[in-house]
Simulated scan of single mutants.
Amino acid sequence: MNTRDVITRYYELANQGDWSSWVDLFAVDQVTDEQLAGHIEGQQTLREMMAGFPDMYASFQNVPRHVVIEGEQAAVVSHISATTHQGETIEADVANYFRVTDGRIAYLANFHDSVPFRAVSPA
């Protein structure tokens, strides 16, 4: 897959809640700098982390609003709408930076307002 295909699939799988296939988009030695979860290295670490994601959210949508792709790099501005199992709603704008190598996400960094996520973040 080229960079555009990977980025398109990233959001499709997230919005389907198919977290196992979503993690498969990442390289085995991937690095993610996630604003809430911190620095994550390795596909298996990411897979273990995402296994608990459905327990946090009853619904989750991450809709791209603006996508810029240049070679192996992409920047996406999107909007997250989510609901926890306790009925709390989350609305947040997000900016993601991706580096895709050999058809896999090698690096991801995301930036968003963390306040809406306080309801689901560990205390």
Results as ranks from 00 to 15, higher is better:
residue 17 G to A: 14
residue 11 Y to G: 06
residue 112 H to W: 08
residue 55 D to M: 05
residue 35 Q to R: 11
residue 111 F to E: 08
residue 82 A to W: 06
residue 45 T to W: 04
residue 77 V to H: 11
residue 120 V to P: 06
residue 2 N to V: 13
residue 54 P to K: 13
residue 67 V to P: 08
residue 39 H to W: 05
residue 115 V to P: 04
residue 45 T to D: 13
residue 15 N to M: 09
residue 70 E to L: 10
residue 34 E to G: 05
residue 40 I to A: 01
residue 78 S to M: 05
residue 70 E to P: 07
residue 54 P to Q: 12
residue 103 G to H: 09
residue 96 N to A: 05
residue 120 V to K: 10
residue 30 Q to F: 14
residue 65 R to M: 09
residue 53 F to C: 02
residue 32 T to G: 03
residue 103 G to S: 06
residue 74 A to N: 12
residue 37 A to E: 08
residue 12 E to Q: 15
residue 85 H to Q: 10
residue 28 V to N: 08
residue 112 H to P: 00
residue 84 T to G: 10
residue 121 S to M: 06
residue 89 T to N: 14
residue 114 S to V: 14
residue 74 A to M: 11
residue 86 Q to D: 13
residue 21 S to V: 05
residue 40 I to R: 00
residue 96 N to L: 11
residue 63 V to R: 15
residue 9 R to A: 10
residue 32 T to R: 03
residue 54 P to W: 14
residue 123 A to H: 08
residue 87 G to V: 11
residue 117 F to W: 12
residue 80 I to F: 03
residue 8 T to W: 04
residue 55 D to L: 08
residue 108 L to N: 01
residue 59 S to D: 06
residue 101 T to P: 00
residue 85 H to F: 09
residue 104 R to H: 15
residue 54 P to Y: 15
residue 31 V to P: 04
residue 59 S to F: 05
residue 120 V to Q: 13
residue 31 V to M: 07
residue 83 T to L: 14
residue 46 L to V: 08
residue 16 Q to P: 02
residue 41 E to P: 03
residue 67 V to G: 13
residue 106 A to S: 11
residue 40 I to P: 00
residue 19 W to Q: 01
residue 39 H to D: 02
residue 10 Y to G: 01
residue 55 D to R: 15
residue 57 Y to L: 15
residue 75 A to S: 06
residue 76 V to A: 10
residue 100 V to D: 04
residue 62 N to F: 14
residue 113 D to A: 00
residue 81 S to W: 01
residue 23 V to F: 06
residue 93 D to V: 05
residue 58 A to G: 14
residue 81 S to P: 00
residue 49 M to W: 08
residue 113 D to I: 02
residue 56 M to T: 12
residue 79 H to A: 09
residue 72 E to D: 07
residue 94 V to P: 03
residue 102 D to W: 04
residue 36 L to P: 05
residue 47 R to H: 15
residue 75 A to W: 03
residue 119 A to K: 06
residue 32 T to K: 00
residue 69 I to M: 06
residue 6 V to G: 12
